[in-house]
Computed example of a mutant assay.
Amino acid sequence: MIRLGRIDHVGLRVADLDEAAARWCIQLGLMERARDEQRAFLACDDEPYCLELAAGEEPGHDHTAFELHTTCPPDDAQAHLDGLGVPHEEREGSIWLADPDGRAIQLLPNRPPEAEFGRWPQHARRSATVHLGGPRRLGHVNCLTGDIRANASFYLDVLGMRLSDWLGTAGVWFHIDSEHHVMALVDVGYAHFHHLAFDVVDIGKMRDLLDHLARHGRWVSWGPARHGIAGNIATYVRITEEPCHVELYCDMERLADDHVPRTYPDDRYSSNTWGPLPPRSYFRFDAAAIESESESWETRGRPLPPEEVEA
């Protein structure tokens, strides 16, 4: 069997490592922990890192990393994958594989705290490096897909996540601990990494971060919204350089050990109890969608043109 302990980090490819590392730190309040010629490692608080930036020719999602649970050594995880016939390889001390959409997954061995205080709540750990301003931690990721059933089976059966809820047949959420989800999929007919999500303490902190991001030319692609599914208050900010969104969220639902997955109707209330669904640009990453969103063309009466598909 396999069991995951938590999400560890997200890896993004960037066009200019120096520019990207400075931008994520200045605009999102992250801290650079380490750097080599090809990668920069950024953190929210006192974790080793939660965002890995790697120099690459095509900016975008590179991989998502999960740490194995303390009860699941790497040999057990590899035996589980071998038993299912899932291709994987060992490198950099980790297990690497890919989901049905081709997104890379890194499985890290469990790394227990070096000292007892590492098990204490975040606010109780003394620090000489943590600074004021950023989010508390990386919480989850969300991906668009064209084959939601195959990907759902992968995250449930191959990675051992547990099912949280369905949104009709168009969306599915998975958890590995009591927090409602660590991974989600939305079926839009094609695959793309949609967002990485940072936990903030409350809506006041979210407001401060959004004010700060606005001063740096960022805009809200959707929100603030109150999700019916998962219950969290969430705001999504467009990141044009590494085409994805960043979600800032708080008040996520916690699930009981005997949680029974639910199926919500695919309606506005399930997505946002406070009001509107996201603009259609929210699910696209082409130039027309970005312009439409940044200029609020949809709400100003100009429809979003169809996405051009290369022949």
Rank of each mutant, 00 (worst) to 15 (best):
W297G: 02
R207A: 13
G5S: 08
R137W: 11
R103A: 05
Q78V: 12
T263I: 15
A289D: 01
L185H: 01
A234M: 02
F198N: 00
D18Y: 05
G204I: 05
V141P: 01
D157N: 15
A287E: 15
S281G: 15
Y249D: 06
R215S: 15
Y190T: 03
S94L: 01
R268W: 07
A225S: 14
P74Y: 09
G171I: 05
P59C: 06
L185C: 06
S270Q: 10
D82Q: 14
A225R: 12
I290S: 01
L156A: 11
A55C: 01
V130K: 14
H195A: 07
D187N: 13
H175C: 03
N272M: 06
E89I: 05
T169I: 02
L53A: 12
W166Q: 05
P73H: 06
H63K: 03
R136S: 15
T169N: 10
D165Y: 02
T235S: 14
H123T: 06
D286Q: 09
L132I: 09
A256S: 15
E92Q: 08
G56R: 02
H180Y: 13
D36M: 11
R33H: 13
F198T: 00
H61I: 02
T70E: 11
V237G: 10
H123D: 14
M31T: 05
R238G: 06
R300Y: 03
T64I: 14
E241C: 02
H195S: 03
Y264E: 13
G102K: 10
E253H: 07
P74F: 08
G83K: 02
D267F: 00
V182R: 04
P265D: 12
L213V: 04
H80L: 06
R23V: 05
D75C: 03
T263F: 05
N232R: 03
M1R: 04
L255A: 02
L255T: 09
E57F: 02
E116V: 13
A98V: 11
L30W: 12
T240R: 09
D45T: 14
G102S: 02
P109C: 06
A170I: 10
I290T: 07
M252Y: 01
I290L: 00
A15S: 12
F285K: 01
H131P: 00
D199K: 11
P59Y: 01
S178G: 01
F285H: 03
R218G: 12
G231I: 07
G85H: 10
G223W: 07
E293K: 02
H88I: 00
D286G: 11
E92A: 13
V14F: 07
H9N: 09
R215H: 14
N110F: 11
A230P: 00
D16G: 09
A170Q: 14
I233S: 14
Y155E: 11
V86N: 00
E57K: 14
P279Q: 10
D75M: 06
V237S: 08
G11T: 10
A79T: 13
Y190L: 02
N272H: 06
C250T: 15
E307C: 06
L138W: 11
L304E: 01
H192S: 08
E19I: 08
L144R: 08
E307N: 04
N151G: 05
L210V: 15
G133Y: 03
C25F: 12
R149F: 00
Q106S: 07
I105L: 07
A54L: 13
A225Q: 10
R13S: 00
R215L: 15
N272W: 04
L144F: 15
A15G: 10
P261A: 02
W297D: 07
L144M: 13
R111W: 06
G133R: 05
